[in-house]
Nucleic acid binder design. Structure first.
Lengths: 328, 328
DNA sequence: TTGAAAGCGCTAACAT
DNA sequence: ATGTTAGCGCTTTCAA
């Protein structure tokens, strides 16, 4: 390994004090002679010097690090979310530290602890848990936080989310128009995940006063398939509403295996994964979110909070779009 | 913002010197009285103290930061790659700094510069460019690097990749058996991307001596669709080989629009995105890579290089699997 | 069993 | 226009 070049090496080689080098690094050229400036520039290039960020951070008393905690890094929603966050911070002097909770509460906790040790200046959090007391240590710390996709209640930090409730209300209208008598909501465990709760509750709200029955089936339940079959057997015209991309594909797989036709035997509508929903036959109706925009706005909001304190917590809803296709 | 708690605060409150606190933090209990240990433990818990990583890094002369540079963060391959990398480093004391080049050479360069400033201890690189001179500054720095998915030539750093060439040779056999007379390779620009080159060259190698013609069509070319149509018109039995997931879906979309039947009118085989390839009708044959394993192995390898210097550059191939389905 | 003091690479207040 | 110096939070040598 090469010996690391420091500010002292540059100072010595350029024949000036390290203060002058520091001034150069921080663009303080007001009182610097042209010659000195050029000489420093050359020396830095020659030795390929990069100022040590840890030392700068230590001195400045902040780390220029943003922590991003995601529930599960390996799905499209997250990828696009991260794209948006990265695009924004790319233009700033912050670095992004992404940590994957892998849907494991203990791992999330350990990640958040790590972030504290890294002295992160701010954080974007897709919380695994709905209860604020689980994040109490973070709340106490007063670290700037922006939530994405989901939020804890009561609101402690601003959240940037999709308009989940409203879009389910809209879907309810469609179910009524198409004269379904049963809607099965297929989801991962919804308790404690605000986005899923809102999708479920929005549907029920939109359906009040109608004759349509709503069933919730969680695929974490090992015998969800038999529950689903049983439910289908006792209903006339049923639609399945899959609350995320992964669940949608489980549903498609199930229907294929059971040789149930869509939409003749059962209607189907999902969330996300638009480009694929569009591709299969019949094309599947879905609610299309905008995770990249959610990420971008969250990053922007966080930057605002970090640098001009006192912005109030607020719930920011990014519109999603219902893509009506052949499956309903 | 709360005043940050430092080692001095703990020392003062616990009534010992900061040396002793430091010893506690670094598990040096050999000569520490039980009482002192307990008192420190309590004080740390009470004040919710987290040692400052920047200060530790400055002292230790390394950052405990790993840089990961990916070509494009928003696709499934990358997500799963990152999952593997994260899972590995999760168990170490390293943090992972993920940077997205967004397929932009300048942005990649800027990211790598940033990483130098962050004093990263090591790097996992999915290079955008094939030529070593583009990465010369990195090579000079002697930063430990492991390449993933692709590599620059001649080999400078070890690379963990899929067995691209071999799997294309295997596919060639299948094309022969199924008596195709033309294979169209559909891809993003392959020049300078070793994985794509190997897939293309493997196919040609496997086909030498046969009567089968190979055409390469790059979808970056704005009129790829007309080129494709023209090619299909002059051939008898054609198969399309799409070199990655994204391109595969472009192909599916194209064939659907042209109302060409698969496999009757044209055969189709792709790469990645297995769960979707499996879902559509007809199910599409595809080569299934293992990006999570690639990530894990790369991380492991990097850790090895960083901590026990002198491991020689080597090309590690992770097997992928050909999933033969109805589309061929 | 514990502490004092020096120093990691940088910035900034205060010189000159 | 530039330099001297103290100090950010930590680890480590040396001493007690």
């Amino acid at each position: 390994m090469d010996k690391k070049i420091t500010i002292n090496d540059i100072a010595a080689k350029a024949g000036v004090s390290k203060t002058t080098i520091s001034r150069y690094l921080n663009d303080k050229f007001d009182n610097m002679s042209k010659t000195t400036k050029v000489r420093i520039e050359q020396t830095i290039a020659e030795l390929d010097y990069h100022p040590n960020r840890q030392a700068q951070a230590l001195k400045a008393r902040n780390s220029f690090l943003i922590g991003v905690s995601v529930a599960d890094i390996s799905n499209m929603y997250t990828s696009r979310l991260l794209k948006g966050i990265g695009d924004y911070f790319q233009k700033t002097h912050y670095q992004v530290l992404i940590m994957d909770a892998d849907n494991d509460i203990n791992r999330e906790l350990s990640n958040l602890e790590q972030m504290m040790t890294e002295q992160i200046d701010g954080m974007i959090l897709q919380p695994l848990v709905h209860q604020p007391d689980h994040y109490q240590f973070l709340i106490n710390k007063k670290t700037p936080v922006v939530q994405v996709d989901r939020y804890i209640e009561p609101f402690t930090w601003p959240a940037v989310v999709s308009d989940n409730f409203q879009k389910s209300v809209d879907l309810a209208k469609i179910f009524k128009t198409k004269q379904y008598d049963t809607v099965i909501v297929l989801a991962n465990r919804i308790t404690g995940v605000s986005s899923r709760m809102n999708r479920y509750n929005g549907l029920k709200a939109g359906l009040t006063g109608s004759q349509i029955t709503v069933h919730l089936i969680e695929i974490d339940d090992s015998n969800w398939q038999s529950i689903l079959t049983a439910t289908l057997n006792v209903s006339q015209r049923t639609a399945i509403f899959a609350l995320n991309g992964q669940v949608l594909w489980s549903a498609v797989r199930f229907l294929k295996a059971q040789q149930l036709r869509v939409p003749e035997d059962v209607g189907l509508v999902g969330y996300d994964d638009d480009q694929f929903a569009d591709m299969i036959s019949p094309a599947i109706a879905s609610v299309s979110q905008n995770p990249q925009e959610i990420g971008r706005i969250a990053a922007e909001k966080l930057n605002l909070i970090m640098n001009e304190h006192g912005v109030l917590p607020k719930n920011i809803r990014i519109p999603s779009t219902i893509q009506l296709r052949d499956s309903l």
